[in-house]
Amino acid sequence: MTVATARSPAATGAPPGGPSRRGVLRWLLPLAPSLVLLAIFLAGPILWSVYIAFTNETLTGSASVNSQFVGFANFIRLFGDPNFLNSFLLTFVFVIGSAVIGQNTLGLVIALLQRGRGRVTRSVVNGVVIAAWVMPEIVAAACWFSFLAEDGTLNTVLGVSQEWLYTAPMVAVILANVWRGTAFSMLVYSAALSEVPADLVEAAAVDGAGPVRRLVHITLPLIRRSIMANLMLITLQTLAAFGLIYALTGGGPGTASQTTPLYMYEQAFRYFEIGYGSAIALVLLVIGALFSLVYLRLIKVEDA
C-alpha cells in the first residue's frame, strides 16, 4: 500500500518525453537531507571502522596518531586468539539460548495462550510482558542484579546462599535477556496469529484434529514467514547485545560470560586496541549477515 502511494506522484509527474533529469530530481531532492545524514552518520562510521580494522590504530600511544596499514594481521591474530574463540562460542550459546529458544518459544506460547481470552487478561499480560521490554537495558540489568545477588530476592525466597552471577553467569544473562526480550516475539506472533483464518482452524476441529494437531498442521505452517522474520530480527538483536551482559556480569567471572561484543569492548576501550576491536566488529557484522542470509533463504524456500 505504501509502495503504491509513493509511486503514483512520481509516475504521474514524469513528463511523457521519458525519464528526464527533472524526474530524478523530483524524488532525489526531498530524499537528499536524509541521504546526506545517512551517509555522514551511518555509512561514514561504518566505512571508517572497516578501514581501521586493517590498521594498528590504538587509542593511546604513538599508534594513535600514526597508525599503519597492517593488512590482515588483525584477522590472523583474531582467529588464533583463544579468548575470541571462547567469546564466539559464548555468543552462540547466548543467541541460541536466549533468542532462538527462549524469547521465540516463550513469545509464541504467550501469544497462543492469549487467543480468545478476555480483554482484561490480555491487557494485564501484555502490560506486564511489554513493561520488561520498555525498560531501559541498564534498569533491567539492575533488577536482575538485585534479584540474583547474594542477598537478593531469589536467595531470600529459596533460603539459600548462592552467588548466581558467579556460579552460573551464562544462565543468568540468558534468563535476563529472555525476560526482557520476549515481548517483541509475543507482539510479532500475536499479530501473525490474528491473521490465521478462524474458519480453517474450525474446519480442522470439525474434522477431528486435536489442539496439538491444529497447532502443528494449521497454525504454525500459516505463520511460518512470521517465525522466520522474527527469528532473524531477534538473532541480530541478540548477537549485538552488550549493555545487559556488561551491567550484569561484566563478561565475568574471568571470561565465563564474555560474549563477542564484550570482548570487542574490552579490546577496543579497555586495552585501547581500537584497530583490533574494529576487526572483531567486522567479523561480528559478517556473522550477522550470514545469519540473515540463512533466514532469508529459508523464507524464499517457503515461497517457492
Binding site: F41, L42, P45, I46, W48, S49, L236, Q237, L239, A240, F242, A281, L284, L285, G288
Partner: peptide
Amino acid sequence: MMRRLAGSLLLVAA
C-alpha cells in the same frame, strides 16, 4: 546490527 555498531560509534563521537 549495522545500526547498532554505527550507533555505538556515534555515541563515542557524541
